[in-house]
Design a protein around this nucleic acid. Structure first.
Lengths: 213, 213
DNA sequence: TAGATTGTTAATCGATTAACAATC
DNA sequence: TAGATTGTTAATCGATTAACAATC
C-alpha cells in the first residue's frame, strides 16, 4: 500500500495546532505524567476534547479506548509528524539586530532545523560570529549552497532586498522560508513552504483587539 | 443609535487579514495609485475579490459601484479600524537579546503603540539604554504603571517568569499583551487581548511543511 | 445611457462540535 | 464484567465563494 498514514491533505488549521499540542505534552513529560485523556488535555489547553481527537486521528490512532493517551508516546509521535527528528539545513540571510537575536534566541535543533550558515551584504559584519557561525558576505552564498545544499532560509532582510534574494535562493534549491521580511513570497511562489512572521501585522492585530475589547 | 458601524462581532479571521490589506494598500499609496477594484487587488494579494468585498463590508461601504475603491481613503479607513491613530502606551518586560531586537526593530508608532518604558530583572542591565529609553529594574514597575498607566505589555521573558509577571501586570491595569514568551496567557485570562508570537511553534509548522511538500 | 463594479444575498464548502458504537 | 474513553460518523456552525441586483 502506498500511503502509510492519513496525512495527505491535512488541513492547515490542524497543522497549526500541532506545535501547541507538542508544547503542552512536553510539559507533561517534564512533570513525569504518563497518561492523559482528551478531556483532561482539552481542559488544560482551553479547546474541546472532540477537536483533539479529530486532530490526532488525521495522523493515526494514538490512543486506547478506556485509557486515553500515553503521554511519552504521543509526544514522540507528534514530534515525528512535525519532522523534528530530521533537521533541515538552514541558512540565515541578514545578520542585523533581528537576525542575530533570532539566531541566538531560538533552539533550531529542537525544532527540526540546523543552522549551518549566516550571510549579510554588509561587509563590515563579515567574519564576525553569530552563535558558532562566521558571517559570510553575500558573494559566498552560491558556492556555499552548491556545496552544502541547505533546504531552508531564515530571511531577516528588508522588503526591498527580499524579492531578488528569494529568487536566487529558490534557484539554489531552497524549499522553505522562515520569513521575517515584509515581502509576500507566497503570492509569487506557490509551491514553496513559507512561514511568515510579520511582526508588524501581529502588532496591528493586537492594536485592533485592545481598542475593541 | 448606539452602534455607528457593523464592527461588533467581526470574525478573528477577518481581523487577521486587515493588516495585510493595509500593507498592500500602503504600497499602492506609495506608488501614487489612486483607485483599485476588488478584482485587481485580489490578483495582487492572491485571494478572491469576493472575500475582499465581504471583509471590507464588515466595517462599512468604502467602495463605489462602477468605480472601485479610493486607495488613499481605504488605506486611512483601515488604519482607523485597526486603531493605529490612537497609540496604546506600552512597556517592554525583558530586555535581553530578543526584547532589545524587537524594541529597536519594530516601528511601534506606525502600528498603534508607543513604547514608554523598559524593565528587566537583571540588575546589570539597569540604566542601560534601549532606543531612547533607560532600562529599569523590576521593582520600579508598580510605581511606573500607577503613574503612567500603560495599557499594553511586550513580554520577552522566559516562560518560568511569565505567570507571575502577567498576574501583576493585569492587576496594574494592562489590557493587552504582545507575548513572545511561551506562557499561554489566554488559557487563564479570557478577557485580555493577547497576540502570541510563538517563534518555536512557527518553526515547527515550517518543519512540517518542508517535510511534506 | 452603457459599462463597470460594488454591496449583499444565496450556495457551497469546510471546520468544529456532538453523539455514540466500538473496544480496551 | 462494568466503566471509561477512544475513533468515527453525523449534525451544526461558520467561512468562503458565487451570483446578481443595485447603482455609480
Amino acid at each position: 500500500m502506498f500511503l502509510l498514514n492519513k496525512q495527505n491533505g491535512v488541513s492547515d488549521l490542524v497543522i497549526n495546532r500541532l506545535p501547541r499540542y507538542y508544547r503542552f505534552l512536553g510539559e507533561l513529560v517534564a512533570e513525569g505524567e504518563k497518561r492523559i485523556s482528551s478531556r483532561e488535555l482539552s481542559e488544560k489547553m482551553g479547546i474541546t476534547a472532540s477537536q483533539i481527537r479529530q486532530d490526532l486521528n488525521c495522523f493515526g490512532g494514538f490512543g486506547q479506548q478506556g485509557y486515553g493517551y500515553n503521554i511519552d508516546m504521543l509526544y514522540e509521535e507528534i514530534g515525528k509528524i512535525l519532522g523534528l527528528d530530521k533537521p533541515s539545513k538552514t541558512i540565515l540571510i541578514g545578520a542585523g539586530n533581528l537576525g542575530k537575536a533570532i539566531a541566538t534566541h531560538v533552539s533550531f535543533n529542537e525544532k527540526g532545523f540546523e543552522l549551518i550558515g549566516v550571510f549579510d551584504k554588509d561587509l563590515s559584519l563579515t567574519e564576525k560570529i553569530i552563535g558558532e557561525l562566521k558571517i559570510n558576505s553575500m558573494d559566498k552564498l552560491e558556492d556555499f549552497c552548491l556545496k552544502n545544499k541547505p533546504e531552508c532560509a531564515l530571511l531577516c532582510i528588508p522588503k526591498t532586498a527580499a524579492a531578488n534574494v528569494c529568487e536566487k535562493l529558490i534557484s539554489l534549491g531552497i524549499k522553505g522560508f522562515w520569513n521575517f521580511s515584509h515581502y509576500d513570497l507566497s503570492v509569487k511562489y506557490k509551491n514553496i513552504a513559507v512561514e511568515n512572521v510579520h511582526l508588524g501585522d501581529s502588532l496591528m492585530k493586537l492594536s485592533y483587539r485592545i481598542k475593541n475589547q
